[in-house]
Design a binder for these strands. Structure first.
Lengths: 207, 207
DNA sequence: TAAACTACTATACAAAAGAATACGTGTCAA
DNA sequence: TTGACACGTATTCTTTTGTATAGTAGTTTA
């Protein structure tokens, strides 16, 4: 892309930050006011930026200005589930506490959701207050970490499907593995596989 | 958040998609035209959406409409550094391998960057191939995890500043702590504090 | 059953905002 | 030295756009 003059760069930065903060692009006059110049001068700058391919303007439309370059990288809105109930619609909007924009490269699969970890059973790999990303799938490979629903309680465990039944095991040795006979295993529903963990280390005593 | 009527939901969806496609929000009249109704009716819908907290309107401003709830949530482009050299400009574009859009709520601080972990010295909290988020700061509190630059080598360690000098210690007991006399400590530069860890669990044998 | 909310029509007006006109300055390459 | 270009001031015109007034109906809720 063609190089910008210093002045044009500051104008572009202003437009980018305005969009980010306000949620809508600035008008010609707002750009002018920000730099203490006349609208006409601002038009010249915006025209230069358009000519060099940094933004697009819809003629005649107020705020008809959109950024081309920067491009808010490919993001996917991933729902953070507050609670998980046995009631079918897992991703129903009532359960969605908020939705976080994550880079597409992190989101593996179509149906994914985030969950805030509560127990210590998966320590030290997964700790309380971690955010885990879960891909919805009803089966996981042996030994993989999954979200299992047991009587309306969602838990994070490694899953071992064996001839003798189903074993759900935490990494934390303080927790005894849960064993289910083939009959009982029907009450256990695998909601999905844990494909990622995010941990915030700010203001924590222990990692 | 308060529930929407069917009609309000379709209007909100229209606004969201308009923003996504055009890069700027629609005018009252554009909303009206899209549904074949009068501007006044569109105002009613937008007022309802604002009252229920789904969007924000700046009175009197054209296109002064911004999505609060859903929408491509506030993202910050965080640079993923490929290598870290002693040469001053840490976030110089030559060192930036790519830039990932992360939710603002995860990004604590002004200057942050991401780093891919290579060594095992911080296991089990931080493992190879993890992505750590680092906030640029030259000092960290005792025992916090920091990125330290020792002779052009960036390492992840807990930092203990003591009267007897500086100690850099990994969580992994297999690694012996690095000790620096007050004199030697001048060669160690703290680049920043580790404020977050992201781990991808896809295709791993063990967490 | 009254009050509040939703969903709309029709018309009008004033502020907001884009664009046009008319100039002035300095730089740089042909 | 002439013309293209970047950058700027000042003013005016016209369209776009938000908002207001004045109603009409149907639905929901207290």
């Amino acid at each position: 892309m063609k190089p910008l003059t210093d002045r044009q760069q500051t104008v572009l930065t202003f437009v980018e930050e305005f969009c980010e903060h306000q949620g809508y692009p600035p008008t010609v006059r707002e750009v002018a006011a920000a730099f203490g110049i006349q609208p006409r001068a601002a038009v010249d700058h915006l025209a230069a930026l358009r000519r060099k391919g940094y933004l697009h303007r819809e003629p005649g439309l107020s705020r008809g200005l959109s950024l081309t370059s920067k491009s808010p990288g490919p993001v996917v809105e991933v729902p953070l589930l507050g609670r998980i109930a046995a009631g079918q619609p897992l991703l129903a909007s009532e359960n969605v506490e908020e939705t976080l924009p994550l880079p597409r490269s992190w989101v593996r699969g179509e149906e994914v959701f985030l969950l805030k970890v509560t127990g210590e059973s998966m320590a030290p790999v997964i700790l309380p207050d971690d955010l885990v990303m879960v891909r919805v799938q009803s089966r996981v490979a042996r030994g993989e970490i999954a979200v299992a629903l047991i009587d309306d309680d969602a838990t994070l465990k490694r899953v071992y499907e064996e001839a003798g039944g189903l074993v759900l095991k935490g990494d934390n040795p303080d927790f005894t593995p849960l064993r289910f006979s083939p009959d009982e295993a029907a009450d256990v529903k695998i909601l999905g596989k844990v494909v990622g963990v995010y941990r915030n280390l700010e203001g924590k005593r222990r990692g």
